[in-house]
């Protein structure tokens, strides 16, 4: 059942898109809350900073950035025999 060198499976999912999904949904909910549904009491709590709105917008921006990153540098599906790190001796970097 387990062939040890079956090659790397393609990554079934990209964690960047999941992060974008989470931040996107949170951002959308918070922005709507901030724009219309945050009571004056809640506003006063935070010293009249509409933190829902601002945090919401920031999260939306972050979500867009993650999607952009995932689009610009999509996951590379490694070649079948990338089981071990190739022992490339071509470096000059010292430790």
């Amino acid at each position: 059942m387990s062939t040890s060198t079956g090659g790397r499976h393609t990554s079934a999912f990209d964690v960047r898109l999941i992060i974008a999904l989470l931040l996107g949904v949170y951002g959308a909910v918070l922005t709507i809350m901030g724009a219309g549904f945050t009571s004056d009491d809640d506003l006063a709590k935070a010293d009249n900073v509409n933190i829902n709105l601002w945090a919401g917008i920031a999260m939306l921006v972050a979500a867009v950035l993650f999607v952009a990153w995932a689009k610009i540098r999509p996951l590379v599906i490694p070649a079948a025999e990338t089981t071990e790190e190739p022992a490339a001796g071509d470096t000059t970097e010292t430790s």
Partner: peptide, 11 residues
């Protein structure tokens, strides 16, 4: 408890 409104509180 003192600072965050509902919404941010959930986050």
């Amino acid at each position: 408890r003192d600072l965050l409104p509902n919404g941010m509180l959930g986050v």
